[in-house]
């Protein structure tokens, strides 16, 4: 399966690329700047390109799956990310539909649905792409990780429709593993779920959805 990874230069992205490479997927990594491309290839991407809304079409042509990482990177300016974020997702989803890309995995954030309360600007509007995806003609999975941390992955997680625990966290490495495991795991097809660190193995947790 050929996989296209949007937001690949983020902190989850590098783990995703490494793991896809280990599992011999052919990948195209989409970064935001020219000088990230070398890094992306070093991380294990088969090919890499800079994000360009106009060319998304043609990029998607040869790929069967998309992993879209919303850039909830602590290093970026949060306000800016939100604005760019959902437009880019919408664009990617539309293009995926057009090109007949069947599989679409979106990494969103826990409690993304709370943004309609209006107070939490930094999650604002993140639910829009989630809804859009559910309506689109693709096999989607929306994975909403809790607070991302730089701990080493443990390979075990807690999976739930809604995780409302403020102290819940998950290693970036584990999120990457969940995203990739979900690619071909039918139990995850057309589902939205929250994930945090826990004690069920990733494969088991996803299969029991």
């Amino acid at each position: 399966m050929n996989v296209l990874v949007f937001g690949a230069h983020g902190s989850v992205g590098e783990h995703v690329l490494k793991k896809l490479n280990q599992k011999n997927y052919k990948t195209m990594a989409i970064g935001s700047k020219e000088n990230q491309l070398e890094d992306l290839k070093k991380d294990g991407a088969t090919d890499a390109a800079v994000y360009d809304e106009q060319q998304n079409d043609s990029l998607l042509q040869n790929y069967e799956a998309v992993i879209f990482l919303t850039d909830i990177n602590t290093k970026s300016d949060t306000d800016k990310t939100v604005l760019v974020d959902h437009r880019a997702v919408i664009n990617a989803v539309e293009n995926a539909e057009k090109q007949g890309v069947k599989r679409f995995i979106l990494m969103s954030a826990v409690r993304a649905n709370e943004s309609s309360d209006g107070t939490k600007r930094n999650i604002g509007a993140k639910e829009i792409p989630d809804e859009l995806l559910q309506k689109a003609d693709v096999t989607y999975t929306v994975i909403r990780p809790s607070k991302l941390v730089d701990k080493p992955g443990q390979g075990t997680i807690l999976l739930d429709a809604m995780i409302n625990n403020d102290s819940a966290e998950i290693a970036r490495e584990d999120v990457a593993a969940v995203l990739i495991e979900a690619l071909e795991n039918e139990a995850t097809f057309n589902k939205t779920f929250d994930v945090s660190s826990g004690n069920v193995s990733i494969q088991q947790a996803l299969s029991s959805l």
Partner: peptide
């Protein structure tokens, strides 16, 4: 910018 630095952070340290 951070993004422009020539740094190799591919292999993380545990």
């Amino acid at each position: 910018l951070r993004d422009e630095m020539k740094v190799d952070n591919i292999e993380k340290i545990k």
